[in-house]
Nucleic acid binder design. Structure first.
Lengths: 193, 193
DNA sequence: CCCTTGATGTGATAAATGTCACGCGCAATT
DNA sequence: AATTGCGCGTGACATTTATCACATCAAGGG
């Protein structure tokens, strides 16, 4: 289970074999079954989580009880609740598994230690964060300027792997439109194209 | 003009007087008149810009010619086009002044130099980035889950300083609703409260 | 001091989207 | 084999929001 992570660290973050062994020493293996929580609202997020296999979602439950999905995660993605993790405060969000999943967790102190000691990992991590910020900005732009159809097209173009893996109503939740509307959009869309 | 920046660096980023002098040596003063561009679509963003005075907006022009405001900036905020800056690619966005403004620019190489040599500044910068990421995430959540009225209330609560400083139609653009709708929402809102 | 420009408000109407209700089909469970 | 839950589609209708058109008002430039 650690193997996938090792490959990732070597190829993406350019870690040496020795560094990878150090990472291994502080890595926690975790399996999640479908529907199982990784993090629940109110918990403090203490780990950086690397997803070796499976699919997760991070979502918030509104006051009306409706779930709003902030993001998905699939193989080779990291996931955590940044706001909770960084500030040590209770999370407003939930993370749970959409499929049986395999994760590798690194506790905050251990993670800081790695970042501090491995400049190459730090550089990699910073680049990742920067990219994920860019993604956020582009998503906001899409949110405020695109029609529902454009948002959907955008999504399946950007995340083809995710879009045929998670149920449509969750994509609707992610995009901020009702499942009915998205269903209609998609059908009209496939009819005419 | 540099003085405000010096105070900021001392108080917020805990820089020493010597460090501040080093920053001063690489800082470029820039004044913008209302409506003047700091960055234009297609340009590459080469600077980190600290806003000592005034108000700016970062926006993108859609294919239909409509302007969509991604963010505002006021005193003591940083602004740049991250995606362009980090990747050295032409910007998709424009930045211009909503008021006569005073800026302090630091060129990318100089900025990296500072980050590299001043660990306290690096820590500060990382914390800033982390917070701005959190803000983005919360904004996305608002985008996909709030009604237009909630978005507006949210905005004036989060940015009271901005909301009585920029024209309403720009707030509408920022929120992703038409100016007419926002005008109506605000009037109903003030009537009943 | 006039004239333009920009910002806002508002009515009328169209378009988009949400909500509610229901049915169908599939897959997992028992 | 029957049952249950889930995902999806779809019709009918309500609500929200956008669009278009026009009026008003204030600020600023010539």
């Amino acid at each position: 289970m650690f193997e996938k992570f090792a490959v990732y660290l070597k190829e993406k973050a350019s870690l040496t074999d020795e560094q990878i062994e150090e990472v291994r020493a502080v890595t926690i293996n975790k399996r999640l079954r479908k529907r199982q929580y990784l993090l629940q609202e109110g918990d403090v997020c203490h780990h950086n989580c690397f997803l070796a296999k499976g699919c997760l979602r991070l979502y918030r439950v509104g006051e009306d009880g409706v779930e709003h999905i902030l993001r998905f995660a699939v193989e080779n993605w990291w996931i955590s609740d940044q706001e909770s993790y960084n500030n040590g405060i209770p999370s407003k969000n939930n993370i749970d598994a959409l499929e049986d999943s395999e994760l590798l967790l690194i506790e905050k102190n251990d993670f800081n230690h790695i970042v501090h000691n491995f400049p190459n990992f730090r550089t990699f991590k910073d680049a990742l964060k920067a990219r994920s910020f860019d993604v956020s900005q582009n998503r906001i732009m899409s949110n405020i300027s695109d029609t529902a159809e454009e948002k959907y097209k955008n999504f399946i173009k950007s995340y083809p792997d995710i879009s045929n893996r998670v149920p449509l109503h969750m994509i609707a939740s992610f995009l901020g439109v009702s499942r009915e509307t998205l269903s209609r959009i998609r059908n009209q869309f496939t009819k005419t194209h």
